[in-house]
């Protein structure tokens, strides 16, 4: 019963947050800028053009009415038209959102893949060089500006070592002469469905550097959390018993200790996902990644508010949904969460 009530309350609160987020985006994008009509009317508009734009944008309607029509439009997936390109924003999002989600999901995956084993090893070999490098790395990753780190990775892996591509989502010979059919927009998935292993590997190679940039910080956190949890678990009796039984060290660490210690590290999923979505604005410019982040950063320069608003709203909704799903999953896995 408590579980049902908790779930209902969480869903209700999330719905409230969605309305609040929409309202805030509406205020910032439509009320704060001094003259949206002049921006809409294009460069050096005449007075008539501005007046016409005011009618098109419905700027003279009372605010509550404007908000309702804004929210309805957003709710039905009608994000309006870009001031600059005059293209439908919903069409652009269809292409750019999967690119950013692919990057965010992959980097979250990478963060766990790097952070959890590193935490296990650091806990097993406390005080070793690996443990020290890990804790040093997690201190440094907090202070490293994302955009600068991205440039350093490009320098090392692309310019010096030449093992990974500098930028882009696919090599030009693929994207221009032999493009992937657009199915989901996730290149890795589209390459699999099109049965083209070479394209899959190419897409993967392009993903690694931007994803690594975004994974460094959450990986550090995942490592710290895993390490702390593992140290506590490794002192427990069932581990001592497993040792006494003569089980191998890896089997004890990964088979008996890690499953009990992995919970805290999984909370990093939400954080990492949010960090990737946010960092995408910075990282996508540097890696020329054709996603939402680059879409937004280009819109900033031309004060294309409908684009920034739509992207902010969509990304935030993804984030709210993600948090809701994580919370509810956690409650299912461990019903004690609902009681707190």
């Amino acid at each position: 019963m408590d579980l049902v009530r908790y779930t209902l309350r969480r869903v209700f609160l999330s719905a409230f947050v969605v309305v609040g987020v929409t309202f805030l985006v509406f205020v910032v994008a439509q009320v704060v800028p001094s003259d949206p009509a002049a921006l809409y009317a294009g460069p050096r508009p005449t007075a008539e053009q501005i007046a016409k734009a005011r009618v098109t944008l419905d700027l003279d309607a009372p605010l509550p009415q404007r908000f309702v029509s804004f929210a309805t439009a957003m709710g039905t997936g009608d994000f309006g038209v870009s001031y600059k390109s005059r293209r439908l924003i919903s069409q652009d999002l269809r292409v750019y959102l999967p690119a950013t989600l692919e990057l965010a999901i992959f980097s979250t995956f990478l963060a766990l893949l790097l952070g959890i084993p590193a935490g296990v090893i650091a806990a097993a070999r406390r005080g070793s060089w690996l443990d020290r490098i890990g804790s040093l790395g997690s201190i440094l990753s907090v202070a490293m500006p994302t955009f600068f780190f991205a440039m350093l990775l490009q320098l090392v892996f692309s310019q010096w070592l030449g093992i990974l591509p500098l930028a882009g989502r696919l090599s030009q010979q693929i994207s221009i002469s032999d493009p992937l059919p657009f199915l989901t927009g996730f290149n890795l998935i589209d390459a699999v469905t099109a049965a083209r292993p070479a394209v899959f590997l190419d897409a993967l190679a392009h993903l690694i550097l931007p994803a690594l940039t975004l994974a460094a910080y959450p990986a550090g956190i995942a490592m710290r959390l895993t390490r702390a949890a593992m140290i506590e678990i490794l002192a427990r009796r069932h581990i001592v018993a497993a040792r006494a039984l003569g089980l191998s060290a890896p089997r004890i660490l990964f088979g008996h200790a890690l499953p009990n210690a992995v919970g805290p590290a999984l909370t990093v999923i939400g954080l990492s996902f949010a960090y990737a979505l946010t960092g995408a604005v910075l990282v996508e410019i540097i890696f020329a990644w054709p996603g939402l982040g680059r879409y937004v950063s280009e819109a900033i320069l031309s004060k294309d508010f409908p684009v920034i608003a739509a992207a902010t709203l969509v990304v935030t909704l993804c984030y709210v949904m993600m948090n809701l799903v994580i919370d509810l999953t956690q409650t299912l896995v461990d019903p004690r969460v609902a009681l707190t």
Binding site: V17, G20, V21, L24, V25, A29, G279, V281, K303, A311
Partner: peptide
């Protein structure tokens, strides 16, 4: 509930939107 709404945003994105505005 008001703080909930603000915290729902990935922080940098809201800042970007606001700074642009």
């Amino acid at each position: 509930r008001i703080t909930d709404v603000f915290l729902a945003f990935p922080a940098l994105l809201l800042a970007v939107l606001l700074a642009a505005a």
